[in-house]
Design a protein around this nucleic acid. Structure first.
Length: 588
RNA sequence: GGGGCCGUGGUGCAGACGGUUAGCACGCCGGCCUGUCACGUCGGAGGUCGCGGGUUCGAGUCCCGUCGGCCCCGCCA
């Protein structure tokens, strides 16, 4: 006996036909003299009827024993449901299967939660019983969509000449970037592999090897603290191209995203908007702005340059920037709203927060009396503020002031429900700085990574003003989420060495850590660049999942624990001994 | 490392200001039921109140610590 079709496929097409179905008992309704069993498999649910007039007593009694999630094989005939008993909620609702035979293939313990969407259960329980959670239609839809997206991306990239190539998981630990997961080497006592944070160096090597266009849908590993959108292992769509400029990489990326979104029936417009890092920070207070939020930020420093209001006077004298966020619309801020907004500001390091509400050509504000009429007018004009709009002002270092207001922008947009969840706003953020200054370590660090090419015209600045150097780097942003990023790489050994030097990586260290790359760059390395897309994040967005855990089959908790397997776990003395490893217990 | 929310039968929740039998819904078990589809109906079982300590005549409730889950800051080239 073999299955003839999936439960969810039994429609009028099968009328009067005999079918064999295999699946799980979704629900049973025992009316004493008549039993209904909803049988479920991955394609859906169909109602099976057991009528004692049609089958032997023994068969009927077997059906009586069935409980939730028993695994069944049922043979029966498809018939029209009696007039008036159709169920429009089911795809198969016009028909039912009149059972002739039933076989219980397996029983099931009572479940901790129901196998259905909209369950009211903690994520902790879902993760502990992930095998049941994944049985729910919602989770099956998400993982099947994930599969479809991966397949579509493969097909698309293959069609434009990309070659799917693998890279090692057991590889070399490199400085910079995230903390590595280490794997001890039994054959080389005291030495460790690292799991890759990304296939970065290998894909560059592939370019030097002449594969020209590489891609991979691949796991990456970073041992950092977890968030709703961060797991220690996650999946990237990773690609690299030779003989290209950033426009080429951006075009391919837009093609990939277009491909993925077409799966959910959304035709996204390309090319995406492009704005510079500086503009993104200045206007939206974020390098990954959510363009679904209409509110923007404005600079008021020049307007208030002669102010006598003490707090702002001091800010200007300290060469700080005064920024304003405009919250549009007649949004009513209660005392509590204002307090909460201040709390957000303080959380991001603000020393204070000024609010002003536009009203009858002037403003209502705790500081209104300290401002001249001309200043107020100029502020309203600069912000293009209308009646009822509320402005929030912060005075601080440019980047910090922007960042504080940027976070207020996001949190207030959520609170006042101004984000349209059905909109998808893509953009490119370009012209990132190449380097940042790390105050703790007292050295430059890469904003992107150490292999990112500086802009040609900024190369001289490497010697004079490194922080002014812009990178050939680009991030792709969707609805306030960084879904990908990449760069044109350095393909000349002299520049690469110079960057290492600036990063405080000495010749000796560079040779030890990246010797193979520096060497490869000397053997005809073509200009190249690429990008990686956060696959989990994209799938989370298109399935409207609040966390990437919902689109990862077996995710970890915030403490990095898999609640199903209880990994990580202790290992035996013997295992440690073989690896020449000794555990030092943490101090209590 | 830090801030916030949460932890009570299998699941989700309720338990004022500490008071004697810890309540509700769903699920589970048993009976009845031939057109249900969240079936109905009658009955029943099921609890270390996360864990440890303290205050008290008495702690699910108050205090301290600890463990776990979630959100966030730091961190994540």
């Amino acid at each position: 006996m073999r299955r003839t079709c999936y439960c969810g496929e039994v429609t009028e097409m099968y009328l009067s036909k005999e079918v064999i179905l295999e699946g799980w008992a979704h629900r049973t309704r025992d009316h004493g003299g008549l039993i209904f069993i909803d049988l479920r498999d991955r394609e859906g649910i169909v109602q099976v009827v057991f009528d004692p007039a049609e089958i032997p007593r023994e068969t009927f009694n077997t059906a009586k024993e069935v409980k939730s999630e028993y695994v069944l094989r049922i043979k029966g005939t498809v018939r029209k449901r009696p007039e008036g008993t159709e169920n429009p909620k089911l795809k198969t609702g016009n028909v039912e299967v009149l059972a002739k035979e039933i076989e219980i293939l397996n029983t099931s313990l009572p479940l901790p939660f129901k196998i259905e969407d909209e369950i009211d259960v903690s994520e902790e329980v879902r993760l502990r019983y992930r095998f049941l959670d994944l049985r729910r239609p919602e989770m099956q839809r998400k993982l099947i969509l994930r599969h479809k997206a991966a397949q579509a991306v493969r097909k698309y990239l293959d069609s434009i000449g990309f070659i799917e190539l693998e890279t090692p998981f057991l590889t070399k630990s490199t400085p910079e970037g995230a903390r590595d997961f280490l794997v001890p080497s039994r054959l080389n006592p005291g030495k460790f592999y690292a799991l890759p944070q990304s296939p970065q160096l290998f894909k560059q090597i592939y370019m030097i090897s002449g594969f020209d266009r590489y891609f991979q849908i691949v796991k990456c590993f970073r041992d950092e603290d977890l968030r709703a959108d961060r797991q220690p292992e996650f999946t990237q769509i990773d690609l690299e191209m030779a003989f290209v400029e950033k426009e080429d990489v951006m075009e391919v990326t837009e093609g990939i995203l277009k491909t993925i979104f077409s799966i959910i029936g959304i035709d996204i417009k390309t090319p995406f908007l492009r704005i510079s890092y500086t503009e993104a920070i200045d206007t939206y207070g974020s390098d990954k702005p959510d363009l679904r939020i209409p509110w923007k930020m404005y600079t008021l420093t020049d307007i208030l340059v002669d102010t006598e209001f003490k707090i702002l006077r001091e800010a200007i004298d300290e060469k700080n920037t005064i920024k304003a966020l405009k919250v549009e619309g007649n949004t009513k801020f209660s005392r509590k709203d204002l307090d909460d907004t201040l709390a957000i500001a303080v959380n991001y390091g603000a020393k204070g927060l000024i609010w002003m509400r536009v009203s009858e050509g002037s403003v209502t504000s705790p500081i209104a009396k300290h401002l001249k009429e001309g200043e107020i007018k100029a502020i309203i004009e600069r912000c293009e503020a209308k009646e009822g709009d509320t402005l929030f002002l912060v005075a601080d270092k440019w980047e910090k002031a922007c960042e504080i207001l940027g976070n207020i922008r996001i949190e207030l947009a959520r609170r006042f429900n101004v984000i349209d969840e059905d909109r998808y706003e893509f953009l490119w953020v370009t012209d990132f700085p190449l380097l940042d200054w790390d105050e703790e370590e007292k050295r430059y660090v890469s904003v992107h990574h150490p292999f990112t090419s500086p802009m040609d015209e900024d190369i001289p600045l490497l010697d004079t003003d490194p922080l002014k150097v812009r990178a050939k780097a680009y991030d792709v942003v969707l609805n306030g989420v960084e879904i990908g990023g990449g760069s044109i790489r350095i393909h000349r050994q002299d520049i690469q060495e110079k960057i290492f030097k600036l990063l405080g990586i000495g010749d000796e260290e560079a040779k030890i850590k990246f010797g193979f790359l520096l060497e490869a760059l000397q053997y005809g390395a073509p200009p190249h660049g690429g990008l990686a897309l956060g696959f989990d994040r994209i799938i989370a967005i298109i399935t409207k999942s609040p966390s990437i855990r919902d689109v990862i089959a077996f995710p970890k908790t915030q403490k990095g624990i898999c609640l199903m397997t209880q990994a990580p776990s202790e290992v035996s003395e013997k295992q440690l001994k073989e690896l020449f490893i000794q555990v030092i217990p943490p101090k209590r």
